[in-house]
Computed example of a mutant assay.
Amino acid sequence: MASILAKLPPPPLFANGRHLLLSTLQKVTAPGIGGRQGQFAFVAKATSDTSDESSTSLVKSVQSVWEKSEDRIAVIGLGFSAIVGLWAIVNFVSAIDKLPLIPTALELVGILFSSWFVYRNLLFKPDREEFFRSANKSLSDILGGR
């Protein structure tokens, strides 16, 4: 028999009312559920059927992409290299962030460049129109448009 002595606030909700989290931290008093008496443990809560439907549609879409791919070893290799690359980028940024002056200098460079970009391209109407023309031309060149 589990008695809830402490409970976290309810999990955040999506716009349509589905629960984002599937479990809450509860204090368990029965010895068989969470180990010793009085320990905190995650206790699963039931979710609505609509979240199960969305998860099954996600699984089906991933399965269809997997079935359509011809070179599955390359897909696995790309996924693995993406994970390794993300890990390396996160570690690189955290290493730079630990250095004393570099984060402040990079922040200053970012502020100066953003200010220059706004002044050069967005502040005055003729410059803004020219910028949007060049951006639309570049986008159409990339997408193979007219």
Score class of each variant (00 low, 15 high):
residue 91 N to F: 00
residue 108 L to M: 10
residue 123 L to Y: 02
residue 119 Y to I: 14
residue 22 L to W: 13
residue 7 K to I: 15
residue 12 P to F: 00
residue 9 P to H: 12
residue 77 G to A: 06
residue 116 W to R: 08
residue 33 I to V: 14
residue 117 F to T: 06
residue 102 I to A: 03
residue 5 L to K: 12
residue 63 Q to V: 15
residue 133 R to C: 11
residue 128 R to H: 03
residue 42 F to H: 10
residue 114 S to G: 09
residue 26 Q to D: 14
residue 30 A to K: 09
residue 76 I to L: 07
residue 67 E to W: 07
residue 51 S to I: 14
residue 117 F to C: 06
residue 134 S to D: 12
residue 112 L to D: 02
residue 79 G to A: 14
residue 93 V to P: 01
residue 52 D to R: 13
residue 63 Q to W: 07
residue 18 R to I: 04
residue 89 I to W: 14
residue 77 G to C: 05
residue 47 T to E: 02
residue 24 T to D: 04
residue 122 L to V: 05
residue 17 G to T: 00
residue 38 G to Q: 05
residue 105 A to I: 07
residue 20 L to E: 07
residue 61 S to R: 07
residue 55 S to W: 00
residue 49 D to E: 14
residue 65 V to I: 09
residue 81 S to F: 03
residue 24 T to M: 13
residue 143 L to I: 00
residue 118 V to N: 04
residue 107 E to A: 13
residue 36 R to W: 13
residue 53 E to K: 11
residue 77 G to L: 13
residue 26 Q to W: 01
residue 48 S to V: 00
residue 58 L to E: 10
residue 122 L to Y: 08
residue 135 A to M: 10
residue 137 K to H: 05
residue 84 V to K: 04
residue 86 L to C: 15
residue 41 A to H: 08
residue 75 V to S: 07
residue 67 E to S: 10
residue 31 P to V: 07
residue 16 N to D: 13
residue 126 P to K: 08
residue 25 L to R: 04
residue 130 E to P: 05
residue 60 K to Y: 04
residue 78 L to Q: 13
residue 26 Q to M: 12
residue 38 G to A: 03
residue 67 E to F: 08
residue 55 S to M: 15
residue 143 L to S: 00
residue 72 R to F: 02
residue 61 S to L: 12
residue 130 E to T: 14
residue 44 A to P: 10
residue 107 E to R: 02
residue 107 E to H: 11
residue 76 I to N: 01
residue 24 T to L: 02
residue 81 S to H: 06
residue 99 L to F: 02
residue 2 A to Y: 01
residue 42 F to L: 15
residue 120 R to V: 06
residue 146 R to L: 13
residue 42 F to E: 12
residue 126 P to G: 02
residue 47 T to S: 05
residue 108 L to W: 03
residue 52 D to P: 09
residue 5 L to T: 06
residue 62 V to T: 08
residue 1 M to P: 06
residue 122 L to H: 01
residue 69 S to Y: 09
residue 28 V to D: 14
residue 36 R to V: 06
